[in-house]
C-alpha cells in the first residue's frame, strides 16, 4: 500500500474525530475542515514517522494539534478573531480537567506558553492523553511532561482558571 493509499485509509477512519478536535480548538467549522486537510497533508509528508503496528490516532492528534496551534498563533499575530468565534462553541467548548474554559481564555493562555508547553496543554488537558502518552507522542521524557504540566497548572492558577 502506497503512502497515499494509507493516508486515504487513515482519512476514512479518523478525519471525523480530528475535525471534532480541531473544531474544539479553533471554534470555526471552515477552519477546522482546513485543519483536518492540513493534518493529512502533513501526515503524508511525514509518513515515515508513522510506526506500523501502532494506532495512528495519537500520531494524527499530534500533527493536528500542531496545525491548530499554528493557526491560533497566526490568529494572535493578526490580532483578529481572538475573542470572537463564540457562536459555534456551544457544543464544542473544551473541558479542561472537568472545568469549562472559554476558548478566548484558552487563546490567551496559549499565547503565554512556548510551543512545547502548548502541545502538552492541548494533548493532556484537552485531548485527555495521559502523561506517558504525551511523552511518547512528543518524544520527550515523562518527567519533562510532568514538569511542564506543573508550570502550566501554576499559570492556570495565576490566570484564575481552576
Amino acid at each position: 500500500m502506497s503512502p497515499t493509499q494509507s493516508i486515504e485509509r487513515l482519512h476514512r477512519s479518523y478525519a471525523a474525530v480530528l475535525y471534532d478536535k480541531a473544531l474544539r480548538l479553533l471554534g470555526d467549522r471552515a477552519e477546522a475542515e482546513d485543519a483536518v486537510q492540513e493534518t493529512f497533508i502533513n501526515a503524508h509528508r511525514n509518513f515515515t514517522d508513522f510506526v506500523y503496528g501502532t494506532s495512528a490516532l495519537p500520531w494524527l492528534y499530534r500533527i493536528c494539534t500542531n496545525v491548530c496551534l499554528n493557526q491560533l498563533r497566526s490568529r494572535r499575530r493578526q490580532r483578529s478573531k481572538l475573542l470572537g468565534a463564540q457562536a459555534e462553541t456551544t457544543r464544542c467548548a473544551p473541558a479542561l480537567e472537568g472545568r469549562a474554559i472559554a476558548r478566548a481564555q484558552l487563546d490567551t493562555l496559549l499565547g503565554l506558553l512556548d510551543q512545547r508547553a502548548q502541545q502538552i496543554l492541548v494533548l493532556h488537558f484537552i485531548d485527555g492523553f495521559d502523561q506517558s502518552e504525551v511523552a511518547a507522542q512528543l518524544g520527550i521524557s515523562r518527567r519533562a511532561v510532568v514538569k511542564r504540566l506543573a508550570a502550566v497548572r501554576r499559570l492556570l492558577a495565576s490566570e484564575g482558571v481552576g
Binding site: 471534532d20 494506532s55 490516532l57 495519537p58 492528534y61 473541558a95 485531548d127 485527555g128 492523553f129 502518552e133
Partner: peptide
C-alpha cells in the same frame, strides 16, 4: 472517560 477514549 477521557476525551481521547470517546474519539477512539
Amino acid at each position: 472517560a477521557r476525551y481521547i477514549e470517546f474519539a477512539r
